[in-house]
Design a protein around this nucleic acid. Structure first.
Length: 170
DNA sequence: CGAATGATCCGA
DNA sequence: CGGATCATTCGA
């Protein structure tokens, strides 16, 4: 669930050291029944991680420039994932609080690339760590962003921490 | 093989 | 709005 990722800590121990950020915006994709999901047309070499076990990363390149990171949810065979859309810098990142506001910027600032796709998010250099849950009154929700018309559902599957500078701008 | 297209972002 | 910039996907 995208809502449950809010407040958790994303840590990447890459070649340029340890970088950490607090997730403040996330968006859910329901897999094969969701026209907006990369898994909609079945499994391809790129989307293999989405069909694997939960707790792994699925990272793809957007517009030839921006890596975007998803967390695979559900179990093997169910290609559900959550796109990380925004975070607040904690460690190892220049202190502009808006540096990670957007799925592409988030990965660029963290140093995450498509090479980090299909990684175990519990035990690898790319991890998500537990943190106190964000209280319900601090969470907003709305429709998903950036999808071609008709490819989206009416459901409000985008969640964010109200007022955080790490939330992507519209 | 070639062409179209993005779960983006920035600057004007 | 358009440009950057390229992996992925689809059609021939």
């Amino acid at each position: 669930m995208a809502r449950d990722l809010l407040g958790k800590i994303l840590v990447y121990e890459g070649p340029r050291g340890r970088r950490a950020a607090r997730i403040v915006e996330a968006e859910a994709y329901l897999g094969q029944r969701d026209p907006a999901s990369h898994a909609y047309r079945g499994m391809t070499p790129r989307t293999v991680p989405m069909f694997g076990p939960a707790g792994f990363s699925y990272i793809y390149l957007s517009h030839g420039l921006y890596p975007c990171m998803n967390v695979v949810c559900e179990g093997p065979g169910v290609a559900a994932a959550v796109l990380l859309r925004g975070a607040e810098p904690l460690d190892g990142i220049a202190d502009d609080p808006r540096r990670l506001a957007g799925p592409g910027l988030l990965c660029l600032a963290m140093g995450i690339t498509t090479a980090q796709t299909s990684m175990d998010l519990v035990r690898s250099e790319l991890t998500i760590r537990d943190a106190p849950a964000v209280p319900a009154r601090a969470v907003s929700r709305g429709p998903r962003i950036g999808l071609s018309p008709g490819a989206t559902f009416a459901e409000l599957w985008r969640f964010w921490v109200t007022g955080s500078p790490g939330v992507s701008r519209r």
